[in-house]
Design a protein around this nucleic acid. Sequence first.
DNA 1: AATAGGCTCAACCGCCAGGGT
DNA 2: GACCCTGGCGGTTGAGCCTAT
Length: 256
Amino acid sequence: MGRSPCCDKANVKRGPWSPEEDSKLKAYIQQHGTAGNWIALPKKIGLKRCGKSCRLRWLNYLRPNLRHGRFSEEEDNIICSLYVNIGSRWSVIAAQLPGRTDNDIKNHWNTRLKKKLLTKPTKEQQSETRQVFILNQKIKRESASSMQDYNLKEVEFYDNNQLQPVNANIYFPQDELYYPSTMNNVTSAELTCVNQQQEDYGSTRISGSTNLNSIESTSWGDMRSLINSPLVSDYEGCQQDVSFDESMFYGMIQSQ
DNA sequence: AATAGGCTCAACCGCCAGGGT
DNA sequence: GACCCTGGCGGTTGAGCCTAT
């Protein structure tokens, strides 16, 4: 015997909600709340809708302080970072983006971000990306160039379990913006500390290459561990920055 | 102008966990 | 412990819109 349905499907209306249904539901919930029982709600209001449908309509469309419309670049970055870390736990991701629903984020990911981030670049694009990066690294190292040569991209690393943000700075080559979506492909990284007190940016750098494969998994959480490693944290008085070995850029996606 | 194919997103489906009996 | 009910969640669908031909 199968499980019993949550409502009598023959007698409930399905499909898009009418403005009248919306206003009935909204007015009732704003006045009385849900009383912790969605299933009983439509009967009380006089709606021929399934309780689950009412709940979804309220959560995704009618409740106050919802934001619809285009996602900002910052929101995209947060979604991507969290997706890399925790996967398709849309409700957890939505909790980090006030005003956005899990359904909105899921749709946005499935229709736009997934394609944008998971499309493999052509070999030509990879080669071009690599050359640009090498060139910028060369400029950075040899001429002790100022920070204007690089776009500062502030990224929040999230702990795998607790979702506590840890701030770090990443410098991307000028005019190049990369999404950290393919960090799972990373094989090595260079951690760099930069002392802001020194004019010569390059000469104060300490660095150490670390093979991320030697750690259990390659995730932003592990990047956090690296940042907090003795190599970096023992170097007092320095600003913590992270730069990447060129091999990390293989497979990364260049934004428009 | 007509039409096919792609895209978006609201809504639905079904599974699971947790609480109550 | 078994069963039922409900809320919550992620995956999927399909109607309507958009765009290219």
